[in-house]
Structure formats: C-alpha cells, structure tokens
Amino acid sequence: MGYHIKFLPHKKSIPQWKVQFISFKKSDTQGSKAKKPKREWDIAKDRWLNAQIQLKRQEEQLRKVEETQNQFQLRHDSVLPSEFIAKFEKVFVRKSDSQTEQGLRRTTRSHVVWRAAQRMIIAVGVEPSHWVYSYRQIYEYMIVQKMSVRYAHSVLCMANFWGYFISHKMARPFLPVKSPRGYDRLRLIEANCEKISGVARASKPISPKELEKAKCCMNQRNFNWLFISVWFGLRPKEIDGLRNPELWRAETLANWRKILWVFQTKIIALPREDRWKPIPLIFSEQKFALRIIESGNFKRPLMKTMNKHFEKGTTSYAGRKGFSDLMLSKEQSFENISVWMGHSSLQRTWKSYKSRRRFHLAGYPAW
C-alpha cells in the first residue's frame, strides 16, 4: 500500500506522469463486485503535493533501511567471513530433518539455530579465540534476548562449532564456552519467564468439568476430540491417527475387560512392536470415548476454538496435560499413569505433566 508515480510516455502535454494510490488491502476493495477489483486509483492534482511528501518519506525510509543493511553486512563480513560460511554450513548445518520432510517446517531447526548463533556472534563482536575471556558478555546477550535454557544451550553449541571451525582455519587456539550455570542460569530462567511474545508455553490443562461446561456451545466433533484427549491422555497427533485402523486396536481380555492399544508415531528410537502403549478402560467415560473412536466422529479443534471456549494459553495438549492429575484423583498409581501416557521414565511424567499446585488426599475435594 502506498503512492506510486506512473510514467505516461505517450502523453503530449506536461507532465508526462501522474500520481496513483496502490493498495492490495481487502478493506479498500470490499464494495467492488468485479472479479478482479481495482487496485490503482488516480490522485487529484491538488493532492499531488501531499503525495510527493509521502513519497519522499518512503524514499527516506528505504534509504535508512539500506544503510542499516550495509552496516550490518560490513559487521557480518568482519566477524563471519563469507568464504568460510558455506564450508561450515556444509559440515555442521543439516539441510533436511523429519519436520522439513513432513512439510511442517520450511527450514531445519539446525539452520534456525545457526542464524541465531550468527546474530549472537555479530552482537558480541569478539574473536572466537577470546570467547573464553568474554563469556560473561555472551551470557548477557542471552539474558537480554530472554532465551530459554534449552534454546541458549543449542545456540551456544552451534557458536562453539563455528569457533572451533574458524580457529582451526586461522591456526588459533580455541576453548568452548560452557552453558550458563548457577546464578547466570537463574538469571536466564527469570528473563525467559518474563518474556510475553514470541515464546511457546506449556498448555494449561482441561478438567472434565471444564469440558462439560463448554459442551453446550461447542461443535460436537470438536467436543468428542477433546473428550478422547481428556480421558485417554493421548498426544494430539495420536488422536488424529485414530482414524487409521492400523494405528490402534481394542483388546478384550478373558474377564471381559478391555484395553486400548495405541501406536506412538512420535517415538522412533524403539522397535515398532515396542511403540504400542496400553490404556485399560477402567471408567465409564473411557468406554464412551472408545465408542467415539469406533464411530470416527471427532475432529481436532482450531486454536481460535480453544481460545474461545477455554482459558487463554490452552492448546490441543490441554487434555493430555490434565490426564495425570485426573487419574491420580481416581486413585490410580503414578507408575501406571506413566505407562498409559507412553513415557519412558517417571521423571518425564513428573516433570512435564504433573501440576505442582494440585495434591490428592482423602478428605480433600477431588480435582
């Protein structure tokens, strides 16, 4: 959107140009009934002066952006020589991974981490052989950027790879910078917790009561999907895979009790036969959820649907997030809950899926 000078070479009178306003916003073409709505409008001559002022402002902004890019490129070339970057990326940066092959990401995670490491190297402006003396400056950059501990570790590892690579090329010594510990790690965690935008937080849980309240104003298929999530604690991708009969099966034991077996598509480090996880149907709600699975009448809700019916910060992982506390309130053992969720250790269940604000004791109200 903006003003544009259109040259008119066949016009006999002067000036051989005119000022036009160009916009591709839907709001500017909302009333048009044409198949291809008009995108250009001529500006009256009495408004040309304002248009020229606007054009000068745009030119000034473009000039400033170009100067900033040139300065950045100079700093970039002085710290990260372009002739070595291609060789480094060929060795240390992966061109494809599981997410790019599935079409979930455009660029690999290692490439994203490498770009973040480049920004850090340029901002610090210290030669890699001297990083060991300037590690506080590197930590301060991470704290100012409010990186998570895990992301900071990945960026630092990639920067250390570059430091070793370029120091080896320049025949200089290099000592890697260790990840923040102690007080520096605490400051990094506190800075990341204060970050509001551009950060992914763990989903808030959904209880059966909260789900029941939203039932009256929610699409039935979306409700069924969340009902399966709450009472089986499955990953969102596993629930979507329940439409494929090869990814789940129901087993009936000799005592007429049933077990739902679900194939864990996320796990790739185990043999195929060890990726199946069992979930016994103990409660009537779980038996009803199995009937939903057999009918196929469920669909994952969109994020805007989740935000409309539940608290902000609630994602499709909400049912799984509350599964461990729900089962503990039903007097189930923590070891069994970890197996039903498909975790390889109790630590993963405790660290990521047990709420620190909830306890389960006789005589106290259930969740």
Score class of each variant (00 low, 15 high):
residue 77 D to K: 12
residue 324 S to A: 15
residue 20 Q to P: 03
residue 156 L to F: 01
residue 31 G to Q: 15
residue 66 E to L: 12
residue 254 A to W: 01
residue 82 S to P: 08
residue 48 W to Q: 01
residue 257 R to F: 07
residue 10 H to E: 09
residue 310 F to K: 04
residue 214 A to Q: 09
residue 280 P to D: 03
residue 358 R to L: 15
residue 278 P to D: 01
residue 237 K to R: 11
residue 249 R to S: 08
residue 92 F to K: 09
residue 352 S to A: 14
residue 175 L to I: 13
residue 177 V to D: 00
residue 16 Q to A: 01
residue 193 C to E: 15
residue 190 E to V: 11
residue 155 V to A: 04
residue 242 L to R: 07
residue 122 I to K: 10
residue 218 M to G: 03
residue 319 G to E: 07
residue 312 K to E: 13
residue 36 K to S: 06
residue 23 S to L: 05
residue 299 K to C: 11
residue 136 R to K: 13
residue 12 K to W: 06
residue 268 I to Y: 08
residue 242 L to E: 08
residue 277 K to I: 15
residue 306 M to K: 06
residue 358 R to M: 15
residue 317 Y to E: 04
residue 75 R to C: 07
residue 196 I to T: 13
residue 343 H to V: 05
residue 47 R to H: 10
residue 245 P to R: 10
residue 124 V to G: 08
residue 206 I to A: 04
residue 270 L to T: 07
residue 29 T to L: 03
residue 291 R to Q: 14
residue 257 R to H: 10
residue 74 L to E: 14
residue 244 N to H: 00
residue 320 R to C: 00
residue 104 L to W: 06
residue 46 D to W: 00
residue 163 G to S: 02
residue 101 E to V: 09
residue 99 Q to S: 11
residue 219 N to V: 06
residue 112 V to G: 12
residue 5 I to N: 01
residue 334 F to G: 02
residue 186 L to C: 06
residue 105 R to G: 02
residue 327 M to I: 05
residue 209 K to C: 05
residue 248 W to G: 06
residue 264 Q to H: 06
residue 28 D to Y: 04
residue 73 Q to K: 14
residue 218 M to A: 13
residue 231 W to A: 06
residue 211 L to K: 02
residue 252 T to A: 09
residue 54 Q to I: 07
residue 346 L to E: 13
residue 140 E to F: 10
residue 361 L to I: 09
residue 168 H to A: 13
residue 86 A to D: 09
residue 56 K to I: 12
residue 359 F to R: 11
residue 183 Y to W: 12
residue 61 Q to T: 10
residue 94 R to Q: 12
residue 56 K to V: 11
residue 153 H to I: 09
residue 34 A to L: 12
residue 177 V to R: 03
residue 23 S to P: 00
residue 118 Q to G: 01
residue 44 A to H: 11
residue 69 Q to W: 04
residue 237 K to F: 02
residue 219 N to C: 09
residue 24 F to P: 04
residue 278 P to Q: 01
residue 7 F to H: 13
residue 308 K to G: 02
residue 173 P to W: 05
residue 228 I to C: 01
residue 139 Y to N: 10
residue 224 N to L: 06
residue 189 I to R: 14
residue 193 C to K: 15
residue 166 I to Q: 02
residue 163 G to I: 02
residue 71 Q to D: 12
residue 69 Q to I: 11
residue 323 F to I: 06
residue 103 G to D: 04
residue 296 G to Q: 07
residue 271 P to K: 11
